[in-house]
């Protein structure tokens, strides 16, 4: 049967299109517009072409050097955060009680940090880690280990990693818990009958079944940690020196501290592209073996 084709239906998506245009395309294009111009006071703009991009991607220039240094710090931070939080989250999920009131309490306590706003988390850890009045900082100093995040690189990074782990490991744990819950009992029973060790049960049953939730967990944690701004801004303000100046912090310094809108625009675009690219790579790498198995 021939159906009449009526393209008038396309008009129905116009409102949605208008909203997307307003909240995504137009702001994004503004940034693109800035990135190809140089700005001076008095709202004067001069065409700069791809100049900012060239400078940004050239490590020998002042802007480029700064960009790659903060990019490196952001990448390192994300790598540490993933390496700590993913195994820890899985371990927490595996050791959670299976039922009853203990489970309910456990879920509440694990979810609690997730509900606390970023700047509050930052403030909490800023106070908690201070060497003069903070419980953590004071204690560590008291047992003889010098710990002052305002002048020690290691201490500053430790505080940030601890804080992020405290804040977000619960997310991985909850995701993994849901994933573990969905594994039918028969798998564990079959493993017992097959004489599998606890380690084999983990690597051969649990981990493969957690694959899809871990994919989501790793993606979310990568994006969040790579874009982290508020907490380090509150705790360390990017210091001491610039050792905790991540890309986001550096970007704000350039945009709002120095009012170099062109440089900041170019940096924003490259920053966004990096996140997009890395997420795409993560996704592809983690999804591909599954598809291959199905197609073989």
């Amino acid at each position: 049967m021939d159906k009449p084709i009526n393209n008038a239906a396309w008009f129905l998506i116009l409102p949605a299109f208008a909203i997307v245009l307003f909240n995504a395309v137009i702001p994004m294009m503004t940034v693109v517009n800035y990135s190809v111009q140089d700005s001076f006071g008095n709202n004067q703009f001069f065409w700069n072409g791809l100049g900012w991009f060239q400078e940004l991607l050239d490590p020998s220039s002042e802007l480029g050097g700064r960009f790659f240094a903060s990019l490196g710090r952001s990448a390192l931070f994300s790598a540490i955060v993933l390496a700590v939080q993913v195994p820890l989250g899985i371990a927490v999920a595996l050791s959670m009680p299976r039922s009853g009131i203990a489970l309910a309490l456990c879920l509440v306590f694990i979810a609690m940090p997730l509900l606390i706003p970023w700047n509050v988390v930052g403030t909490m850890w800023q106070l908690y880690s201070r060497s003069d009045i903070g419980l953590l900082g004071w204690t560590v100093n008291a047992i003889g280990i010098p710990f002052n995040y305002t002048n020690s690189v290691l201490a500053a990074w430790t505080v940030l990693v601890l804080m992020d782990t405290w804040h977000w490991t619960g997310l991985i744990a909850l995701l993994c818990y849901a994933g573990l819950k969905s594994i039918p009992d028969a798998y564990y029973q079959a493993a017992r009958i097959d004489g599998a060790s606890r380690w084999a049960v983990f690597t051969r049953i649990e981990l493969p079944k957690l694959r899809s939730v871990l994919l989501i967990g790793v993606l979310l944690r990568f994006m969040d940690s790579f874009m982290i701004y508020t907490e380090p801004f509150v705790v360390t303000g990017g210091g001491p020196g610039s050792v905790t100046t991540f890309l986001s912090i550096d970007l704000v310094k350039i945009a709002l501290g120095q009012f170099d809108l062109g440089k900041a625009g170019a940096m924003s675009i490259v920053y966004t592209l990096i996140i997009l690219a890395v997420c795409w790579v993560f996704y592809t790498v983690m999804v591909t073996p599954e598809n291959k198995g199905a197609r073989e």
């Binding site: 039918p184 028969a186 798998y187 029973q189 017992r192 009958i193 004489g195 049953i205 493969p208």
Partner: peptide, 18 residues
């Protein structure tokens, strides 16, 4: 179970995915 020398097949196929 693992010491008993018994084999059991379940209602739904249980295979090791990887």
């Amino acid at each position: 179970t693992e010491k008993r020398n018994i084999a059991q097949v379940f209602q739904f196929p249980v295979i090791y995915d990887t």
